[in-house]
Design a protein around this nucleic acid. Structure first.
Lengths: 270, 270
DNA sequence: CGGGCTTTTGAGCCAAATCAAAAATAGTGG
DNA sequence: CCACTATTTTTGATTTGGCTCAAAAGCCCG
């Protein structure tokens, strides 16, 4: 059972290791704080507005999101939650949720009991710091989204979002041959960008015609990342990716797989 | 000297007391962590993108804001920082600033050395929790702003922002006779709402004509708060104001002044 | 009293929304 | 595996909220 969990938890460890210096013991503590791992189908609500869940959810595999729905039926997606990201670390402090968290794709979700989080905070300064870091990066991302909503037009906002997606997935070794999994519909992309589904479609077509992205079969390939970053005026500084999570690529497209199994091996060896 | 500082620091204490149960000792610790109090002129940059300041800034009086500027000269304001709010609690963890903080009005800014913050985190669980709370509320506010940018039109976005302003200032006793100080220009309001200055002006005029707000002499009076909240579909839940900071009003418009001096007296008596 | 901000007004334009419907895909049950 | 639905994606036509440009009017302060 430990074996399975450790494999599932690899994304989380990889992400936090990229943020802070964590020792073997920290990794083991974190890993064993994940008391349950759940397979969840796509488009499933994990935590709803007003809830006060008794454990913290962390995405181990797949895509989830935060969103708020308005009375008129519109909704706004507030964050994409990628592998290794916490869904509701804040509930412990704030009391109740002010928004909803749901999966976008089929996902693996880890559950960390509230008391384990408090234990971590009380006993491991390095891990607490890593959790803080994770929360603050999410805040930085949402600030950048706000800039985009307020001051970028639809095309450069979309381009910027795709650049961000690439950077965030690259940092956890989930870019393979310049392509990433992208399980969202255009409607969901529109809810993220604050656009209508129709206009989101036209924007995506524009990016495709400029050969900046190729989106097919729930995968996005970044054909000319530099040109896309140019269009978006993308500066990754706000992501606070202190260093790459995986070793620099030697071979072709296999290195992140190697790095992942390296982490696994390290955990297993404890 | 202690006397002056304690008076200046009242807003901070009031705000955090509203969030968490803090004992007399916590209040004194926090109060004395503010090692320096500075008077700052309006429109002064406090911390710039890329900085790694050695102390944490807290607004004690006046209005400040976070913003990012784009290459095209446009800027987006990301947060209003009201009395009692921290400007850069996150820098300690994230390393460097990814945006700028500047005053909007003439302000009083408190400086808390980095090591004092760390001392607080290490020694007072109640105060740490209060700091966490403060950071997370700022995050909740920015999420709500994102919803507005993505899914509300200019008028209801503006109405919502004014409702929020009222609620946040009311929680720290800064609403007097249904009116609040509002030192921003319409241009700055536009940068907050993601509008052009011209359109922000038209929106404000609309709210005035509906007699929802009266804005004159750097003050906003909320004539029909309920109607404004209606228009904005305002639900204050996201502000996580656990309870009111000041006692319920008995007299007329004097209670917040009373409450403020009460806090001062309490601190002084230590 | 004059020079710089703000605020206000008007006119024209453009990005993105809405409405409507067809075409393409993905599921689902038999 | 196929037929039948439901969902997504795409296209076209039209409308609109908010922008830009331009200029006047009001303020603030030295």
């Amino acid at each position: 059972m430990g074996h399975v969990r450790q494999h599932a938890v690899a994304a989380l460890l990889r992400r936090l290791r990229a943020a802070a210096d964590l020792c073997e013991n920290d990794l083991e503590v974190l890993s064993s704080a994940v008391r349950e791992v759940r397979r969840v189908r796509p488009r499933t609500v994990l935590i709803e507005e007003g809830d006060r869940p008794e454990h913290v959810h962390v995405v181990l595999d797949g895509f989830a999101c935060r969103y708020k729905s308005l009375p008129d039926g519109n909704r706004q997606i507030l964050a994409w939650l990628l592998p290794g990201e916490f869904c509701d670390l804040h509930v412990a402090i704030l009391g109740n949720m002010d928004h909803t968290v749901a999966t976008l794709s089929a996902s693996t979700i880890g559950l960390i009991p509230q008391d384990q989080v408090e234990m971590i905070i009380d006993t491991s300064p390095a891990l607490s710091r890593a959790l803080w870091w994770a929360a603050l990066v999410q805040e930085a991302v949402i600030r950048e989204w706000l800039v985009g909503m307020g001051r970028r037009d639809a095309e450069s906002r979309a381009a910027h979002l795709f650049c961000e997606l690439h950077a965030r997935l690259d940092a956890i070794g989930l870019v393979r041959d310049g392509a990433v999994d992208f399980p969202l519909t255009q409607g969901e992309l529109a809810d993220t960008l604050g656009l209508s589904a129709v206009h989101a479609n036209r924007v995506v077509q524009g990016l495709r015609q400029q050969r900046l992205i190729a989106w097919k079969d729930r995968k996005i390939r970044f054909e000319r990342l530099d040109a896309l970053q140019d269009l978006a005026q993308f500066d990754p500084n706000y992501l606070h990716l202190k260093r790459r999570a995986v070793a620099p690529q030697r071979g072709q497209g296999q290195s992140s797989r190697e790095a992942a199994s390296m982490v696994d091996a390290r955990v297993r060896s404890l």
